Simulated scan of single mutants.
Amino acid sequence: LAEAAGIHLVAPEHRDIWAADTRGVGQLLNAALDTAPQKLIIGLGGSVTTDGGLGLLAALGVTAVDAAGEPTDLRHAARITGERDPRWNDIQVVIAGDVDNPLCGPTGAAAVFGPQKGATDEDIPELDKSLHHWADLLADFTGTDGTTIRDTPGAGAAGGVGAALLSVLHAEMRSGADLLLDLVDFRSKVADADFVLTGEGKIDAQTGYGKAPARVAHSAGNVPVVAFGGRVDATAESPVPGIFIDTVAISDPASPLEENLVNAADSLRKAVASWLAAQ
């Protein structure tokens, strides 16, 4: 998903929570559909969008319209019309997500991820309300239950794309990290390790919502896990109970972000060496 609707594609000053949509992701799915796959894994994560998958569905032929029946955006959607390609009935669709947030509420797509995508404090309540209504429209269209769509873990992934795929394409939700850990037989490989080292760009409150470092820690069993991050937010200070025995920031807070990104590999090597030397 991030290749078509990724946060890295839009500079911070140009991010618009109401304008960014996932139509390009739907176009990628159409291209994949034409290859006649038996199983399709859709990676969700790193999006700059919070459109509930509205744009994605539009590309698949399932369109949100306003009261006048004209195609519209999330805020003005009155109903959903159209139908998906029947070929989707023969494909196993798997969502590989990195968070287990629901669609709406205090841990939902708008509240947790909206700010990094350009949402202001004023936008978030309206955005959450729009997603709440969107869940009801998805429920009406698919004959399911709006509460289930709103509350299903992972429905809030990628700005609500999870909800659209779960309801309209009957996708199966899997932790993307777990999927990859299973592929490399991670559990058996670390069974005799002294430590497991993991990390991500920023370790914060979101990390515990099923992101890769948290899933690594879960899969490591009784092996201690240390997390290294470009930044470590104050809300995730070491140690994080039940997840990591330590969290280590690798960047220089006095240097600009661009410089820290360029030096990330060297900074990580030094941080790991320093941590291990202290044990």
Rank of each mutant, 00 (worst) to 15 (best):
A4K: 14
A20G: 11
T22R: 06
G24I: 00
V25K: 11
L28S: 10
L33V: 01
T35N: 15
K39G: 08
G45S: 11
G46F: 02
G69N: 07
L74P: 00
P86C: 06
W88T: 02
I91S: 11
V94S: 13
I95P: 11
N101H: 11
N101L: 12
L103M: 05
P106V: 04
G108P: 04
A110R: 07
A111W: 14
A119Q: 12
E122S: 06
I124D: 01
D128C: 09
W134T: 02
W134S: 04
A135Y: 01
F141L: 05
T144S: 11
G146Y: 01
I149D: 01
I149C: 01
S167F: 05
H170N: 12
H170M: 10
E172M: 12
D178S: 13
D178I: 07
K189F: 08
A193T: 02
V196N: 08
G199Q: 09
K202C: 08
Y209W: 13
N222A: 10
V225D: 03
V226K: 06
F228S: 04
G230A: 08
G230I: 00
R231M: 04
E237T: 04
G242R: 09
I243E: 11
I243V: 12
I245V: 09
L257V: 00
E258G: 02
S267K: 11
L268I: 06
R269N: 14
A271Q: 01
A278T: 12
Q279E: 05
